[in-house]
Simulated assay, not measured.
Amino acid sequence: MITIRIVLASSSPRRSQLLSQVGLDFEVIEPDIDETNGLDLEASRLVEFLAYEKAHFVAKKISNNLKEDEKCLVIGADTIVKKEKILGKPQNSEEAFQMLKYIQGSWHKVLTGVAVIDASTMNGISDFEVTDVKMKELSDSTIKAYIETKEPLDKAGAYGIQGIGSIFIEKINGCYFNVVGLPLAKLDTLLKKFGVSIV
């Protein structure tokens, strides 16, 4: 009987929480890739590229150590925010302020690329999800107070919809979990192509 391992190629606690939330048994191995690669790509291609790079790095790392009766699926994901410009994670508080100033009071898109790679064959697939998000108008003092909580500093677009940042979001059109960092319905579709169902 073949044993199936699931590995999340991400250090994001939000992605781990989402996988745990749907009852998936998995382990975490953090990828070590240069996320500035492919920055000349359009947003949807960029998140797919980086998600695949993360999954590929981890799959390659563990592929030589798999047992004969073991199958390992590696999940990679990457999230960005886009208005006219693409926003990743802020490097510091000042950059977080500029990002929030830029997207407050307007609609923006959140894109997450998702990749799944079979580490035994190195065959993989990827896709992406897009959600439209409307953020209410924020004063400079509100933005600064939010940054002082430290929540924005490790998140694309400098806010967390699942945390304090939720009070700034007026509307979303699309997948909520995509904004958190992992579109679960999309992931389930990809996993099924490898014969794995979350339910």
Rank of each mutant, 00 (worst) to 15 (best):
F168L: 00
L191K: 01
K85L: 12
I198K: 04
N37W: 15
L191H: 04
D140R: 06
I29A: 12
Y102G: 01
Y102H: 11
Q162V: 08
M122G: 09
G195T: 03
E30V: 02
V196L: 11
Y52R: 08
A158R: 00
E151Q: 01
T112N: 11
C175K: 00
E68W: 13
Q98M: 05
A55P: 14
G23R: 00
L190V: 13
I143F: 07
F194P: 00
K193G: 08
G163K: 03
L18D: 07
A156T: 07
E42S: 13
S106G: 09
A51R: 02
I6H: 09
L19P: 05
L111H: 12
I33E: 05
I86N: 00
D32H: 08
E70H: 04
R5E: 01
Q162M: 05
A77T: 09
A115K: 13
E137S: 10
I161E: 01
E53A: 15
Q91L: 14
L46E: 06
G38N: 03
I80K: 01
A145Y: 03
A185W: 01
Q17W: 08
Y159W: 08
V133E: 06
A115Y: 02
I4K: 10
G38P: 02
A115Q: 11
G195C: 03
N65C: 09
E84T: 02
W107T: 15
T149H: 04
T3G: 12
Q21P: 10
K101M: 04
S197N: 10
A156C: 00
I143Y: 05
G157S: 00
S93A: 13
G113H: 05
T79W: 06
S139G: 02
G76K: 00
T3Y: 03
G88D: 07
E151C: 01
A55L: 12
I75K: 10
V7M: 06
G105E: 07
N123F: 13
D25W: 07
I125P: 07
L18Y: 05
S16A: 06
K101A: 15
S12N: 05
G23D: 11
H56F: 14
Y146E: 01
D140V: 05
N37D: 14
T36F: 15
S20I: 08
K82D: 00
M122K: 10
G157N: 01
A145F: 06
Q104G: 03
S106I: 02
E129C: 13
G88M: 05
T142V: 04
E70G: 14
E53D: 14
K54L: 01
I62R: 06
T189G: 12
S141A: 02
K71C: 08
V28A: 02
L153S: 09
E68M: 15
V130G: 09
I147D: 07
K134A: 12
N92M: 05
L8W: 00
V130W: 10
I75N: 07
F128T: 11
M122A: 09
I80S: 11
E53R: 10
D188S: 14
V114F: 15
Q98V: 09
S120L: 15
L24T: 00
F57C: 13
L191T: 05
S12K: 11
V133Q: 05
G113S: 01
H108Y: 03
E70V: 08
R5M: 04
K85N: 15
L24P: 04
Q17I: 06
D40G: 13
C72M: 06
A119T: 10
